[in-house]
Amino acid sequence: MIDQTALLESQTLRSSVLDRTDVLDRVKALSLLPDGMHVTTAMVAAYFEVSRKAIESLVLDHREELVTNGYRVLAGTELTSFKEVSGFQSRSRSLALYPRRAVLNVAMLLRDSEVARQVRVYLLDMEYLARTQPVDNPVHKESECLDDRIDQRITHILGKTVVPMFNALIETSGEHRKELIALRAGVQRIERRLHQHHARLQRLEGVRDDRPAVGVMAAMDAMNGRTFERHIAKLLIRDGCTNVVVQGGHGDRGVDIIGLTADGRRLVVQCKRFAPYLNITSPDIQKFVGSAKVLYSADVALYVATCPFTPEALSIAAEAGITAVHRGVLEEWSAGEPLRILE
């Protein structure tokens, strides 16, 4: 099995597993730009929970390798065209873009990130599983199952055959008793490690209740504003709301969606599809309070955003009776968890 250290130090080994970009979402949902294909330096830093400077320093040291895997910097007319096509808004004169393959490349180079370490562990375990999985035999395919993995067969042989053989040899041997005991201990260590590895693979392959549905936020991050509003409207209808109308756009008076809750309360919603590294601030909430409470006399007011809220914004929302649906709550809501305020 490939060792993490070797993976960090060998570009050849890294290249051999770069197609397994799905492991990124298995460890943690990767938010994408509106084009649905790329992320920025700030988004990479947010995913790996490190500073932007750490990512920029890594790019400086491994730029050639990252460029090979899709990393590029846009400027001038190329950047203007990208903004027009993708809908991405930025005042910067240049923009570094990473496709998923380059993000996985970063995960295999970034040493001081727990998220990157988890990606490498998951990646190597899946690679080991792929290499040791028995080749399908059409004749016996129906009888083959998870218990047929090569590591489990070896574990069985070691425990049921090799160790007892050593026990018998030790009992009858005098001259080489010490060496045989040492060899038996080594075999037993291998047996224990294989058991541990099998348990680890079962945890990785099993359903993780604490891990959000893969791609939930990535899909929303790829939406444009109007599509995002319709998505929120569908969630409201799913949770029993009626008379739901999407009215976002010019002349919406600060409210994107109106409707009634299942028990007849007047509902208004503001939707903001912002990049995950931005924040909803107190002026944003204050503006919505006026629209929701004064213009619409709402009983239930939701401020739904794909990014976090500042502490001050959350405080004002709580005082004014606004329900702040930040990125974490939105992910759970979209994945099937009902929004309590609507019940």
Rank of each mutant, 00 (worst) to 15 (best):
I2Q: 06
I2E: 03
D3W: 04
D3H: 07
T5I: 05
A6N: 08
L8K: 05
S10A: 01
Q11T: 03
L13A: 04
V17M: 12
L18F: 01
D19I: 03
R20D: 14
V23W: 03
D25T: 09
V27D: 06
L30I: 08
L32V: 13
L33I: 06
M37S: 06
M37P: 02
V39G: 01
A45I: 01
E49S: 12
E56F: 04
L60C: 13
R63G: 12
E65K: 11
A75T: 14
T80E: 14
S81A: 15
V85R: 08
L97G: 01
R100L: 05
V106M: 09
L109F: 11
S113A: 02
E114K: 09
V115N: 01
R117D: 01
M126E: 05
Y128S: 11
H140T: 11
K141M: 02
E142D: 07
E144F: 03
H156F: 10
L158G: 00
L158M: 04
M165N: 13
F166N: 02
F166R: 04
N167V: 14
I170T: 08
H176G: 14
R177G: 15
E179T: 07
I181R: 15
R192D: 13
H195K: 15
Q202Y: 08
Q202G: 10
E205H: 15
G206I: 11
G206N: 14
M217D: 05
A219G: 13
A219H: 12
M220N: 11
R230L: 14
I232F: 08
T242D: 09
N243K: 07
V244L: 00
V255F: 00
I257R: 00
I258D: 00
T261A: 02
L267Q: 00
V268A: 00
V268F: 00
R273L: 02
F274I: 07
F274T: 06
L278K: 13
T281Q: 07
D284F: 04
S291K: 01
L295K: 10
Y296V: 11
S297A: 15
A298W: 00
V300H: 00
Y303L: 13
A305M: 12
E312L: 15
E312K: 14
A313K: 03
L314C: 10
I316W: 08
H326N: 10
H326S: 13
H326W: 07
G328V: 11
S334M: 12
E337Y: 15
L339I: 12
E343D: 10
